[in-house]
């Protein structure tokens, strides 16, 4: 009798723990990524956006955020590729186009060897 009560209590506890763990969803990963990015924890943000991309590979929002995190880590060529994928999904999104234009401007000036403009204000 005592053993069965203990087993039941354990089962309830395990169930509780399982339900308290957040469900793996792109939304959850995106939220965590944006929070990390706001604190400038870009490695963590990148990890979260990458997981979100695995869950929703075609989402232009996820792809955009992933590209921004790659930029923050200095991986500009990869970021350009990801922005292009995102633009294929949503070619008219203004925020996405603006991000891409700003990186393209920065990357071009970097390749030309001139000082990239600070406070990038390129327009799409």
């Amino acid at each position: 009798m005592r053993w069965s009560v203990m087993a039941m209590a354990l089962a309830v506890l395990a169930g509780g723990c399982a339900s308290s763990r957040p469900k793996a969803s792109a939304n959850f990963e995106m939220r965590a990524g944006v929070k990390a990015a706001a604190r400038e924890y870009w490695q963590e943000a990148h990890f979260r956006f990458e997981r979100a991309q695995q869950l929703e590979p075609q989402s232009f929002k996820v792809l955009n955020n992933l590209a921004v995190s790659l930029e923050a880590l200095g991986r500009y060529e990869e970021a350009l590729g990801i922005y292009k994928q995102a633009l294929e999904q949503s070619p008219s999104n203004t925020a996405l186009k603006r991000n891409y234009a700003r990186l393209a401007e920065f990357y071009t000036s970097l390749a030309r060897g001139v000082k990239p403009k600070e406070k990038g204000d390129a327009k799409p």
Partner: peptide
């Protein structure tokens, strides 16, 4: 000056980007 420094010293450029909210 900036080009000369860029040969030897890593730098950062401040900019802004949009992140999409879930």
């Amino acid at each position: 000056e900036n080009k000369l420094v860029g040969v030897f010293v890593p730098r950062t450029v401040k900019t802004k980007r949009f992140l999409f909210l879930p």
